[in-house]
């Protein structure tokens, strides 16, 4: 499992636990807003945490659409390389 994927999974889990939600399995196919009890503020928290942790901001050049964990991992890996 790549570092970025591990961080996304851990951080998502942490955000949900803080909300008092039960956390189910999070896979590459898991969609943030549909499959998990997350709202847009939770998703924003995840993105900001990722930036603070990795120093990477794939959205600097503009808003990009993503729905699931795998697509978000790809966004970070594309600028990491």
């Amino acid at each position: 499992m790549s570092n970025i994927l591990q961080f996304i999974v851990d951080e998502t889990r942490q955000i949900l636990l803080q909300k008092g939600e039960t956390v189910t399995d999070i896979t590459l196919e898991t969609e943030f807003l549909t499959d998990l009890p997350m709202d847009s503020l939770d998703l924003a928290t995840l993105i900001v945490s990722l930036e603070m942790h990795t120093g990477l901001d794939p959205f600097r050049s503009g808003f990009k659409t993503f729905y699931n964990v795998g697509q978000l991992v790809e966004l970070y890996e594309s600028i990491e390389n």
Binding site: S40, L41, A44, I47, V48, E51, M52
Partner: peptide
């Protein structure tokens, strides 16, 4: 605030 593409700003 930290800028982000979802909510514009996020309070920290």
């Amino acid at each position: 605030v930290k800028a982000n593409p979802i909510t514009g700003a996020l309070v920290c």
